[in-house]
């Protein structure tokens, strides 16, 4: 009886679908299609996964034209904001049509997205692709693996006993909490940490220009063949300094090198640093954090998506 009551509470508090294998390869995995979700552990959002397994306000129709394809991590997935507040929804409202399609999904770093980009193009055939990333520095091993087509896919864990247990939301929440207790970290920030701390870890390393050149050239080859314009949207993490000013993780030497490589390969590099700083200095608005989490950390909030 207690488990039933807790499951009812979980419908509104923590109701997350499971990841399924993505057979078309556009992403490493995708969500259970047509599934209601809610999440109040970081921000509060309810919504429905579309028929294709992604967080879009409309269903996927293979005959419709997609102008802009959004790829990225849990930030782009926007599980923490209302569906109409995500970047994808805002762009659709802006263009007044459903031609911006979002396949952003948790734990997909820039390298995961690049690894899947040709398959995503095959399926969605967009005119533009926006790759969202919170980091621009990567380990040499990862870059090497990507170049040699040996970059590992993230498993969906949807089969077997783990897949079965994931279907019960209470058990899933308890497991999430258990992992949090064990690591003494909030599991909600785990995805973000995967993206951001990745960059912290390698921030001290200088950008491996040669390897990155090869990766970007590889991307360029794919997008040129398909006549697609690629935009890499970089959003740095933020911290408040003791004097109240905003510190952005983009303030390191790698950013210029990365930007240069993108420009050399006709890729538009969109750095959100100035916009983030401007919004904070003018309106005291931070792109990350929610009214139930720490200020300025975590996933993109509704202002972050709007920016």
């Amino acid at each position: 009886m207690a488990l039933t009551i807790l499951n009812i509470i979980c419908i509104f508090y923590y109701n997350i679908p499971i990841h399924n294998q993505c057979n078309d390869g556009a992403t490493d995995y995708k969500w259970q299609p047509n599934r209601f979700y809610s999440r109040a552990t970081e921000g509060f959002a309810v919504g429905k996964i579309n028929n294709d397994g992604y967080t879009n306000m409309f269903d996927y129709d293979k005959n419709s034209n997609i102008d802009i394809l959004l790829m990225g991590s849990s930030h782009m997935e926007a599980f923490n904001v209302a569906m109409d507040e995500s970047t994808a929804s805002r762009l659709n409202f802006y263009f007044n049509m459903n031609r911006v399609y979002n396949i952003g999904i948790s734990s997909h770093t820039l390298l995961n997205c690049i690894n899947n980009i040709d398959k995503a193009i095959n399926k969605y055939n967009p005119k533009y692709i926006i790759l969202e990333t919170g980091t621009i520095t990567f380990s040499n091993d990862d870059l090497q693996n990507l170049i040699s087509n040996q970059y590992k896919k993230i498993p969906s864990n949807s089969n077997g006993i783990i897949g079965l247990l994931q279907k019960n939301q209470v058990l899933r929440l308890l497991y999430k909490q258990y992992r949090g207790f064990k690591s003494k970290k909030s599991e909600d920030l785990e995805d973000v940490n995967n993206d951001f701390n990745y960059s912290y870890e390698y921030e001290k390393n200088t950008l491996n220009q040669k390897l990155l050149q090869e990766v970007i050239k590889k991307v360029k080859k794919i997008i040129s063949k398909n006549e697609i314009k690629l935009i890499i949207m970089y959003h740095p993490s933020t911290t408040l300094a003791n004097d109240g000013s905003l510190i952005l993780s983009s303030e390191h030497e790698n950013i210029e090198g990365f930007k240069e490589i993108c420009e050399q390969n006709d890729i538009l590099f969109l750095d959100m640093s100035d916009k983030f700083r401007e919004e904070y200095e003018k309106n005291y608005i931070l792109p990350y954090g929610f009214n139930n989490t720490s200020v300025g950390t975590g996933h993109l909030n509704k202002y972050g998506h709007e920016m």
Partner: peptide, 23 residues
């Protein structure tokens, strides 16, 4: 009582489920 036990386990579930897990 069943009611008492149910309330207790719901509260226990809520404690674990809603707990802040950071240090």
């Amino acid at each position: 009582t069943v009611l008492g036990l149910t309330i207790f386990f719901v509260v226990l579930g809520l404690i674990i489920g809603l707990a802040f897990t950071g240090e």
